[in-house]
Design a binder for these strands. Structure first.
Length: 419
RNA sequence: GUGGGCGUAGCUCAGCUGGUAGAGCACCCGGUUGUGGUCCGGGAUGUCGCGGGUUCGAGCCCCGUCGCUCACCCCA
């Protein structure tokens, strides 16, 4: 008999790690809500053109990493490889940018890229992202960065770094690109690198080979080509970051994989991760809306990798030991005890107490063992004695101490409900 | 798409120069007619990834294949 395996390269979470995953994702969402962002829930697939036009044909993501297929109506559909293009599609479609600006949205869910998997890189992975649409304002740039940074801090992360740069406006980039292409033409490069450079000359700044790295140290930097407006914007962003105590490093050679980025651009890197160390990144995308057929409205946002952030938390051992702890676990004896316990659980749960019991026909020892394994705070035995007296012994599982030796069952909810 | 490493019990792995499988953890039962974690005793579990070849004999050697993994590339 053959069995099944999950498709290649997907991340799956089940207990106990799924508890950590949920905790990490919720922490990220909470931080976004704290800054006034609201949920936008979107499909995981879109018209392929949303991405080819939004993200850019020349990017690796679009040219070779998309899950694209034809649906039954002959439409070309693509599983979303990133979040921003879809959000912009929805903003345009539903005229969300017609009201008061900025529009501040957050999203979460799975994303898909058909890459070769490796540590921290999956074909289905999870992101939490936010988008602030409507103004090109340094304060908003910094707010977005700060949301990511405080989410990381809330998760107890320490060993990460923020890299920022500015890609300037279209004029700045054009002038720089011209000179950069000229410079690259003077280098001796192999075929595939030349192809890469033609698609996006900035890519060479990210090459890991020593000879190319050292050659590129003499290359012209985009930061030196910023227009006065772009330059001023970037200066204010840096000043504001300093004001609110966020450390950063300027990385003039930073390259992002999506074509829509303009102006302020940033990445968070974790030091204990491995080759795929980026835990989040984003930037301004001032031409994206109009290129998707919307108004000429600017925006900025980020995408955070939930899978990688979870790995970072594990590496730093920063997560609480007990997540979603069960309050009470009941070990029943005899069928009567079992029935009684079952009914009691129903009442406790109605009052918001997280609780569980031992099922099956286990001996008391086995039932207590189950209580232990559940990680519950309190343990309780229910048998004939408890039923006839209406009283029980409430036990603190961590120490074994009996908290109350004859607690009325009717008072159980009051006793542990708010503790 | 290109490289490297690895596939043995649920998990982590051992298995010598080829002689038809083992440990630890986890799980279940008992020692304690109704109180877990420690300790002691007992128990179940494997087509040794799959297919072929060499051999009297293959977990081990050879070929193929599938899968996993790490890295390049790229990125969350």
């Amino acid at each position: 008999m053959s069995t099944f395996q999950a498709p290649k390269g997907v991340s799956e979470y089940f207990p106990p790690i799924s508890e950590q995953f949920e905790y990490v994702r919720d922490q990220l969402l909470k931080t976004a809500r704290l800054a006034g962002y609201s949920l936008i829930e979107l499909p995981v697939f879109e018209d392929t053109e949303v991405f080819t036009r939004g993200v850019g044909e020349s990017t690796d993501v679009v040219s070779k990493e998309m899950y694209t297929f034809e649906d039954r109506g002959g439409r070309s559909i693509t599983l979303r490889p990133e979040g921003t293009a879809g959000v912009m599609r929805a903003v345009i479609e539903h005229n969300l940018d017609r009201g008061q600006l900025p529009v501040k949205l957050f999203y979460t869910g799975p994303f898909f890229r058909a890459e070769r998997p490796q540590a921290g890189r999956y074909r289905q992975f999870y992101q939490v992202g936010i988008e602030a649409i409507g103004y090109n304002d340094p304060e908003i740039d910094v707010e977005v960065i700060a949301v990511a940074d405080s989410a990381f801090k809330a998760l107890g992360l320490k060993k990460y770094k923020l890299n920022i740069t500015s890609l300037g406006d279209a004029k700045s980039r054009e002038a720089h690109r011209k000179d950069l292409v000229k410079f690259i033409a003077t280098l001796k490069l192999d075929e595939s690198t030349i192809v890469r450079a033609r698609l996006n000359p900035l890519r060479l700044f990210d090459d890991k080979r020593d000879e190319i790295r050292s050659a590129m140290t003499k290359a012209p930097l985009l930061l030196d080509y910023l227009s006065p407006e772009s330059s001023e914007q970037f200066e204010r962003v840096k000043a504001l970051l300093t004001d609110i105590g966020i450390a950063y490093e300027i990385k003039p050679t930073m390259v992002r994989g999506l074509d829509y980025y303009t102006g302020t651009t940033f990445e968070f890197d974790h030091q204990m991760l491995g080759a795929q160390s980026g835990i989040g990144g984003g930037g301004r995308y001032d031409g994206l809306m109009s290129s998707l057929g919307g108004a000429d409205v600017s925006g900025i946002g980020f995408g955070l990798g939930v899978d990688r952030i979870l790995m970072a938390c594990q590496a730093e051992n920063s997560l609480p030991a007990l997540i979603n702890q069960i309050q009470l676990f009941i070990a029943p004896i005899t069928q009567a005890g079992k029935s009684y316990a079952f009914k009691l659980l129903s009442e406790l749960r109605s009052s918001g107490v997280t609780c569980d019991m031992a099922y099956g026909d286990r001996a008391l020892k086995g039932a207590m063992k189950a209580a232990d394994k559940s990680g519950a705070k309190y343990g309780l035995v229910i048998g004939d004695d408890e039923i006839s007296s209406g009283k029980c012994e409430l036990k603190l599982m961590s120490s074994g101490e009996v908290i109350s030796s004859s607690l009325k069952l009717s008072e159980l909810i009051n006793r542990i409900g708010n503790k």
